[in-house]
Structure formats: structure tokens, C-alpha cells
Design a binder for these strands. Structure first.
Length: 418
RNA sequence: GUGAGUGUAGCACAAUGGUAGUGCACCAGAUUGUGGAUCUGGGCGUUGUGGGUUCGAGCCCCAUCACUCACCCCA
């Protein structure tokens, strides 16, 4: 072979596409009911869009972006996530001017140059939703309800919704400082990474899997005690709303998000079994400062993204075989084959899936192809039938056969098969 | 970026250092105009690649590449 697919990117083969389409269809239907419109934004953007929005200290920006200088000297990046591009489009097209609230969703590939493993690819796909313009707790509830509904609708088992509040730009720094001094006092108990995180991203230490760090942070200060009144009320109202709607969730005080722009409500849909070590199937949160950061008017926002590959790993197995054509035409001899081709073509024009044998080998081999195609019926036209002016319609399941006059046979088949 | 595991036919897997095999799938025949089941026959291959040890390497050693899983990170 000359070359293979690039490491960490996958072909989605025909036998897998049905599952993808089922997921995408379910998403489109549900988003519509919640009043979201689809948006399609480019998969390449100016690099600065991501460095600005995601935060320069995040791993994504530091070492995972597919960033390059194009032939004209522009700094370009393949999008590593979807929110930044959507917000850019929101600002660029002044969507805030036509509607106080904009609810949009997107789906498509994202790119991060990581070491691939189960549920982690270099090109992966996300379905995401964003609400721009609403700061009320009800908006958070709506977004969470949408996410929750989606997993229920797909019948995904073994996932749990976790939420947390990270506070805002006013109260989070206070917590951050408190946590920093707490961690600093236990520096020698922490892993190397977390020692570094004390300065760069202390919140991350709460999420560290290292045994020593877990012990060291067991009685770390609690964000919920540092929330200011606004954030505390907001979080309480969100929880109230979720309870009202019967949405099952738990509060994970240690949930931190990797992207800098999050504030207040954050959440994850985590896999409780399967899916390997990469157990975040969907995640998101509020990002009230992002629109302004990207040059738009001060506009609150909240959204989430689901990893489609991870989601599909969780989906119940679908045992139903792929459907086959309504009719397969097996014809013997030149004249019969030409007739068969016309019949198949006529059925197709009427919207009926029909196949015919291209090679025109023995009847046995044509029957074999018909069987393998999954066709429910076969039209057999041999020399004898041609002479008699009939075709044999065979039901592949019951093996019943009936003669049909060739005169007007296409119309008759359309009637019977559609 | 770090670590571990695995590379044999299209797929799934065997083979105490001594002639590379089994199942599935594929093709043909048994059935000269009727698919699936059964039986019979057929081709399955530079054992990932390159070196080394050995009379002899799929097996041992080294390197390299690929894949997988985990760390990290994250959807």
C-alpha cells in the first residue's frame, strides 16, 4: 500500500454509517424541538481565535493544535473545538442584533494532535449546542435538559450527569488563591504535575488521579463556599430547575474544565462503564466572558459538545441487518438482460430500490448475488420466459414464485413493491 | 511527550528452534435454469520491516515501523 490513513484518524465505513446517521438524526430532531438552528462554520480559523478563547496555558493550545502557516503567510489552525468558531460567527454576523437569544447547534470534525487511544482520536467528531444571550439559570436548565433528553432518547445506558459551579471572574480568583495556599502547604505530597499546577492551574489538582494528590486534596477548600451571592443563587436556581424537570444529576465539586473560558455552571456526561479511560462523553458550561473576549458586545453564553465516537461506543448494539433492495433482476441472455436493466431502471425512477446483475453469469450465481444483496424478491427472466412473454417473481423468503406478463411489468412491480 | 503490550492468509487465531496450519469468508463442483444448509475440492502467506545468533528462526537477541491500551489531556 502506498500510504495509510494518518495516525489517529479513522474511516467511517459504510456498515458504521447507519449508527452515525441515527445519532445525527436524533440530534437534529431534538434540537429542533428545543428551538435550536443548525450553523455550519469552517473547520479552519485564524490561530489567534483559539489561543484567545481556549487560553494559552491549556494543553490544547500548547501542544495539540494542528497549526500552520499557509502559502500566503496566514496563521491557520484546524479547529480543536467548536465553540470558538461559533462565537466568532455570532459576532461577525452580528446575530445579537436580530435576536436577544441565539440558540444554535453544529456537528462536525475537530482536530487535536494527541496520542490516540480508546475514545481519543486526532480527528474526532462533536455535536455541540450553544445559547448566546441568556444569563438566566433557566437557560442553563434548558441546555442541561436538552443534553439529558438526548442521551435518554438514544437509550444510552451507563452515563451520569455531573454538574458544578466554578464561580465567576469576581469570586473565582478568591477561591483560586485559597486553593493555591492550601496546595502550597502540601507541596511535597503532590505529584510533579500538580506541583507545577499550583501556579499554572491549581483547580486541576483537584482532578488529579495520583494517589498522593487525592489524599493531599481530600480536605481542600470547597469552591461552593467561595461563590459570591450571584453565583450561589444562580447555581441554586439551576439545581432547582433540574429537580423540577426530574433530571437526575450529581454535584461533582472537583469537576474542572480544561478550557479557560468557563464560568459558573459546568457539567459533564460521564460514562460509568465502557468507553475506556476517556469517560467524558459530553461536556460543557457557561462562558459569560467569551463573546466580549472575541470582540463582541458583552453577551453571556452557555453550551456543550458531545464526542460522537465516544457516544457511539456507548450505544446499544444494533442487530438489525442492513436492508436490501426490493427487487433483484436475474436475467439470462442478451435480450433478457437488456429488458431486466430497463425494468430495474423503471423501478428506480419510481423510487423503488432495484438491482440487476451486471455480469450476467449463470442463474445460480445471479441468485447467489441476489441472496447476498439482501433482496426480498428476484425477477427471473430466462430464454423460456422471454419466449412466453412472462417473468418469474420469486419471494426469497417464502420461495413462492409467480409468473407476471412482461407487458407492463414495471408498472405492476412498482405497484407490488412500493 | 512518557510507559506497557501486540504484530502469522481478507478476518479470527494456532504452530517444544526442525516441511507454516485451523476456522470463518472467498472461488469451483456435487445440482448443465433457482440463493441460504451439507459435502468435496481449490488459492490462501515475502510470518510488519531490517539486521544478528544458529547447521537451521514465525519462535531467541537488537533496531525500526505500525497498531492497541494506559499516563498525560480531554469530547
Amino acid at each position: 500500500m502506498l500510504t495509510k490513513a494518518i495516525k489517529g484518524v479513522k474511516d467511517i465505513l459504510p456498515q458504521d454509517v447507519a449508527r452515525w446517521q441515527a445519532v445525527e438524526r436524533a440530534a437534529r430532531e431534538l434540537f429542533k424541538v428545543y428551538g435550536f438552528s443548525e450553523v455550519r462554520v469552517p473547520i479552519i480559523e485564524h490561530t489567534v481565535l483559539f489561543t484567545r478563547s481556549i487560553g494559552t496555558t491549556s494543553d490544547i493550545v500548547e501542544k495539540e493544535m494542528y497549526a500552520f502557516t499557509d502559502r500566503g503567510g496566514d496563521e491557520i489552525t484546524l479547529r480543536p473545538e467548536g465553540t470558538a468558531g461559533v462565537v466568532r460567527a455570532f459576532v461577525e454576523h452580528k446575530m445579537y442584533a436580530t435576536n436577544p437569544i441565539t440558540k444554535i447547534f453544529y456537528m462536525g470534525p475537530m482536530f487535536r494532535r494527541e496520542r490516540p487511544q480508546a475514545g481519543r482520536l486526532r480527528q474526532f467528531h462533536q455535536i455541540g449546542a450553544e445559547v448566546l444571550g441568556g444569563a438566566e439559570p433557566s437557560v442553563d436548565v434548558d441546555v442541561l435538559a436538552l443534553l439529558y433528553d438526548f442521551f435518554q432518547r438514544l437509550g444510552v445506558q451507563g452515563v451520569a450527569l455531573q454538574i458544578n459551579s466554578l464561580g465567576c471572574k469576581d469570586c473565582r480568583p478568591r477561591y483560586r488563591e485559597a486553593l493555591k495556599s492550601f496546595l502550597d502547604a502540601r507541596r511535597d505530597m503532590l505529584c510533579e504535575d500538580c506541583q507545577r499546577r499550583i501556579e499554572t492551574n491549581p483547580l486541576r489538582a483537584l482532578d488529579c488521579k495520583a494517589a498522593g494528590c487525592k489524599v493531599a486534596t481530600a480536605d481542600a477548600p470547597d469552591m461552593s463556599e467561595y461563590l459570591d451571592d450571584g453565583c450561589r443563587d444562580h447555581f441554586a436556581a439551576v439545581r432547582q430547575g433540574l429537580d423540577d424537570l426530574g433530571i437526575v444529576y450529581s454535584i461533582n465539586k472537583r469537576m474542572v474544565r480544561g478550557l479557560d473560558y468557563y464560568s459558573r455552571t459546568t457539567f459533564e456526561m460521564v460514562a460509568t462503564d465502557k468507553a475506556g479511560a476517556q469517560n467524558a462523553v459530553a461536556a460543557g458550561g457557561r462562558y459569560d466572558g467569551l463573546v466580549e473576549e472575541l470582540g463582541g458586545p458583552s453577551t453571556p453564553g452557555i453550551g456543550f459538545a458531545m464526542g460522537v465516537e465516544r457516544l457511539i461506543l456507548m450505544l446499544p448494539e444494533d442487530g438489525t441487518p442492513a436492508p436490501g433492495p426490493a427487487l433483484f433482476v436475474a436475467a439470462l441472455g442478451d435480450e433478457a438482460q437488456r429488458l431486466g436493466r430497463r425494468v430495474a431502471h423503471g423501478l428506480r425512477k419510481s423510487g423503488v430500490w432495484a438491482e440487476y446483475d451486471y455480469a450476467g453469469a449463470s442463474l445460480k450465481s445471479q441468485m447467489k448475488k441476489a441472496d447476498r444483496s439482501g433482496a426480498s424478491r428476484v425477477l427471473i427472466i430466462g430464454e423460456d420466459e422471454l419466449a412466453k412473454g412472462v417473468g418469474i417473481l420469486r419471494d426469497m423468503k417464502t420461495k413462492e414464485q409467480a409468473e407476471l406478463p412482461l407487458e407492463g411489468i414495471t408498472g405492476e412491480l412498482v405497484k407490488r413493491l412500493s
